[in-house]
Computed example of a mutant assay.
Amino acid sequence: MDKQDSIYVAGHRGLVGSAILRKLEREGYRNLIYRSSSELDLRDSRQTMAFFQEHSIDYVFLAAAKVGGIAANNEYPADFIRDNLMIQTNVIEAAYRTNVKKLLFLGSTCIYPKLAPQPLKEEYLLTGELEPTNEPYAIAKIAGIKMCQSYNRQYGTRFISAMPTNMYGPNDNFNLHTSHVLPALIRKFHEAKENRLPSVEVWGTGNPRREFLHSDDLAEACLFLMNHYEDSEIVNIGVGEDISIRELAEKIRDIVGYDGDIVFNPSIPDGTPRKLVDVAKINRLGWKAKIGLDNGLRSVYDAFRQDDLVKQ
């Protein structure tokens, strides 16, 4: 991408989109386009097409999506499959119709089979059954991958797809009902410390293992792929290391400074037993994650605590 190119970041207020926008601004890209969901409903095909026709967009980072943790996926499965299918279909079609030079579609590692071998290699896609708790979301993301590949094959577009592992960072969702595990634990331990509670409940057994990538690392990887990757095949983005939920909870408890007990609730489903991605492909291309989990957690907690003080 040239610094003067018109770049649209879809989903710029979310965890991933805001990180991409910050990275682009730091790198000197100034012709950046973004709209909030209240200004542009990407689920509406007419609005989306009109927006693309109005602006001469060269590059698209498609980070807009309906996302959430196990609770949200279980409660709103129709919303997750419908909204994500509509968003990505409308943006991909509009990008093709208006001759966008290149598009990066951001998926998720939940596209891989529940019991796939570890670490998860890109070729494991569609080789087994999905994790039931987030199957609707995963199917929508798989459809987005296949749309990009199909448009490339039929229309000669340059649409690439990246699969980030579990994300955390600034602008994360700390709502206990809809958030992912890491921000939920930060909020739980923080509030337990503030309210001097004797224990914190953690959903599940604590045994599943997860990999966590800072959103600033992901943003750097996305810019790298946009500038250096042309293949239709998907690319994993991760750190190549994982940690159990039990270990994560203990680490966050220490960072927050909470001295109470951790109580696991095995009645809540664990989800996929392990989800570690193979990052050999993107490492070979020349990119590697830089932000360690300990430093990343401290920075996120510091930001959360400042936000909490502001709200008070």
Rank of each mutant, 00 (worst) to 15 (best):
K281Y: 10
Q312F: 09
T205S: 14
L21S: 03
L15M: 11
I237Q: 00
V277D: 10
F174L: 07
P208Q: 06
L197D: 08
F80Y: 14
A221P: 08
L32N: 06
F264K: 09
P183G: 11
I92A: 13
E122P: 00
K281T: 06
K311W: 12
K66N: 04
V277R: 04
S56D: 08
S244Y: 05
D242I: 02
H55F: 10
Q53T: 10
R97A: 14
N171P: 04
L293G: 14
I81F: 13
Y168F: 15
R196P: 02
N166I: 02
A65L: 07
T127W: 01
L218K: 02
C222N: 07
S267G: 03
Q154G: 01
E191K: 13
T109M: 07
N227P: 03
R30Y: 12
G240T: 05
E194S: 10
C222L: 15
R246Y: 12
L32Y: 08
I160R: 00
L103Q: 05
I262T: 06
Q47W: 00
V200F: 03
R46T: 11
G240S: 08
E75Q: 13
E230Y: 07
A289L: 03
M163K: 15
K3F: 13
E39G: 04
I7L: 03
K251P: 07
A221S: 13
E247S: 14
I70G: 05
P136Q: 10
L293W: 14
A140L: 07
F212H: 08
G240N: 06
E230C: 00
V235R: 03
A65W: 07
K281G: 02
